[in-house]
Amino acid sequence: MNKLYLWGIIITVLMLLFTYISVAGSEGGLNDDIVNMLAITGAVALVLITVFVVIKYVRQMQVDSATGDLADENWDGIGEYKNEVPTGWAITFLLTMIWGMWYWTVGYPVNSYSQIGEYNEDTAAHNAKFEAQYKDITGDRLVEMGESVFLAECKVCHGINADGIDGKAANLNIRIDASSVKHVIENGSNNQLLGFAMPMPDRNGLMNANAGYAPITDAEIEKVSAYVANGMTGEGADVYAGTCAMCHGADGTGVDSMGPNIKKFDTALVTNVLNFGKKGSIGAMPKFERLNAKQKEAVGAYITSLSE
């Protein structure tokens, strides 16, 4: 037997033995785990293929003699035969080129990974899940969702108790305070609380019908501010009826397309503030476009529940 084959067999046996010892001897050893078995199979295949290929080429070097026409050039005494390209090689070369064309024109561009694509898919999947899970929630669950959104988005200005942190933002535990009513009466308002622009005039445009349509006076402003801030009770009912009731309704709950509810919060009011922002006596509130419709509704429900 050729010495080469003998060495091949010895090395194969040694390597398989070593593989077996290192696996079977280690903790866990050879068990039915599919990944372990695949790894062992791979190792065995590697050993066999390596030995086979090495023997084949070493043998070829030992016995093969080249034939064919030499090329004219030689490089430092090393020549080159002008043989035909082997058929298998030529076919592989051709197939590689065809695959390359497909890969660069279709394979890569169409199937390549995109971070933005993954983000879009993520977002769409999340939105669909949110929609399906919370489509029909009402009542307490809606208020709970509103509270969690409030704690994430609103508390930085309105505080965790929604009390406005000592006047740094609006106190949402009451619909409106007297100083805000006064500010709005004196300066007017252009907040889109109805979902569209319906500006309220400043004090020069507010007449008291019960006092012969005279412009509203300082004393009347004081009285009606206290009246509105107290939830439509106390003095100032006549000023309210004569000046404010036309747009805000006799009971202060608002008139469609005319004036918003100033007696208590409602979902439509809060949603419009979230959609368009607001500017009041304390400062400006930005709009919150990042909340979806259900979240806005939930915040409305939560804020409404605070003052009930």
């Binding site: 930085v156 942190i165 740094k168 933002a169 304390i282 400062g283 400006a284 930005p286 919150f288 990042r290």
Partner: peptide, 11 residues
């Protein structure tokens, strides 16, 4: 700038 305002930054 989209979600905080002048008065908030001041405080």
């Amino acid at each position: 700038g989209n979600y905080r305002t002048t008065d908030w930054h001041e405080n």
